[in-house]
Design a protein around this nucleic acid. Structure first.
Length: 292
DNA sequence: TTCCAGGTGGCAT
DNA sequence: ATGCCACATGGA
C-alpha cells in the first residue's frame, strides 16, 4: 500500500538522504530511495510539479494510512523550510549559494537510539563505511522486519541486544575500536532506560545543556557526536556539529580558523537555525570537493 | 606506501 | 584546562 503526501514543499530526496544525516536509505535505479525506519521499510519517491521541482507529491510505498503522522513527523513536513531558507538567505552570500545547491534538504526526525549508535560509529570514519557498519549490526544482530523487493530487512537491535555482545561478537561488523564504545553505550542505555534517552528530545522537559551533558556521558560521544544526535533526533535545530568538513568549509568560505571562532560566529550569524545552515554547508563543501 | 574519513578517550603537562 | 596521540578499517 501507498501513502501519499500531496503539496509537499521545499523537498528533494537526494539532498535529504545524501547530506550525511541518515545511513539506512539507499538510492534505487529509478531515483527513488528505500530505507528502514523504526522497523518499517518504505520506498520514497517524489514527483515534482512542472513549475517547481522542489514542490510536489511524496509517495511512500509499503506504508499505511495509520502511519501517516509517523511519516509526516519523520520528514518534518509541518516545518516551513521555505521561511527558514528566506531567513538564512538574508545573512550572507555564502549561505545563499550553499542553499541553492542543497535546496530541499530537511532534517529528519530520527530515533535517538539509532542516531546515538550511528554517530558513535561515524567518528574518524567515512560515510560508506558508516553505512556498512550499521547495516552489518542490523543484519547480524537485529530482528528481521519483513521482506521488501526480495530483500530481507532488519531493524536496529535494541540496547538489550547489543549490551549482551562482546567485542569479539561485534568483530564481524568491522567497527574497529568503536565496537567497545557501542557495547559500553548499550549497557548504559539499558541501565538508564531507553525512555531516559528519548526524554532528551522533549523540549519542555529538557534543556539543551541538560541533553548535551547527558549525551556526553556516553563512551564514544564527544561534542561533535552529541551535536549530531541533538540535531538529527532531538529537535535541537541550533546545534552545529563541527567535523573535518565543517572546519574546512568555515576556513575556505568564511576565513575562520579554529573551533571556538566558528561556534561563536555561527551562533551570532545563524542563531536558532544553525543546524540547518550546517546541513547546507556540509552538503555544499562535500560537493565542491567531489565527495558526492 | 601513506593519507584520510561527519572524533574521542586517555594520558601527560 | 589544554595538547598530544593511538585507535580499526578500507578506499584512493
Amino acid at each position: 500500500m501507498e501513502l501519499v503526501f500531496e503539496n509537499t514543499a521545499d523537498f528533494q530526496l537526494t539532498h535529504i538522504f545524501d547530506c550525511g544525516q541518515c545511513f539506512r536509505w539507499n538510492k534505487e535505479p529509478d531515483g527513488s530511495y528505500t530505507g528502514v525506519v523504526m522497523d518499517k521499510v518504505v520506498n520514497a519517491a517524489f514527483f515534482p510539479d512542472e513549475q517547481d521541482m522542489y514542490h510536489g507529491t511524496l509517495v511512500l510505498d509499503n506504508a499505511c494510512e495509520e502511519d501517516r503522522f509517523f511519516w509526516k513527523d519523520y520528514f518534518d513536513l509541518d516545518r516551513n523550510y521555505g521561511a527558514i531558507q528566506k531567513a538564512l538567505g538574508q545573512k550572507d552570500k555564502v549561505i545563499r549559494e550553499a542553499m541553492e545547491q542543497g535546496k530541499g534538504i530537511r532534517i529528519l526526525r530520527q530515533d535517538p537510539w539509532e542516531t546515538l549508535i550511528s554517530f558513535i560509529i561515524s567518528q574518524n570514519n567515512n560515510i560508506p563505511r558508516i553505512k556498512r557498519g550499521i547495516e552489518s549490526i542490523c543484519s547480524n544482530f537485529g530482528s528481521p522486519t519483513g521482506i521488501y523487493r526480495e530483500k530481507e530487512v532488519y531493524g536496529v537491535p535494541g540496547p538489550e541486544v547489543l549490551a549482551r555482545l562482546s567485542v569479539e561478537d561485534l568483530s564481524v561488523c568491522k567497527l574497529g575500536y568503536r565496537a567497545k564504545y557501542i557495547i559500553h553505550t548499550a549497557k548504559k542505555v539499558l541501565e538508564d532506560g531507553r525512555e531516559k534517552l528519548n526524554s532528551m528530545a522533549n523540549l519542555e522537559e529538557t534543556s539543551f545543556e541538560e541533553a548535551f551533558s547527558y549525551l556526553s556521558q556516553f563512551c564514544g560521544v564527544g561534542p561533535k557526536v552529541a551535536n549530531c544526535i541533538l540535531l538529527f533526533s532531538m529537535n535541537r535545530f541550533s546545534s552545529f556539529p563541527v567535523d573535518v568538513w565543517m572546519t574546512r568549509v568555515m576556513e575556505e568560505l568564511y576565513g575562520l580558523s579554529d573551533k571556538e571562532k566558528i561556534l561563536s560566529f555561527v551562533e551570532e550569524r545563524f542563531g536558532e537555525f544553525g543546524g540547518i545552515a550546517q546541513q547546507y554547508l556540509f552538503y555544499y563543501i562535500r560537493q565542491r570537493h567531489g565527495n558526492l
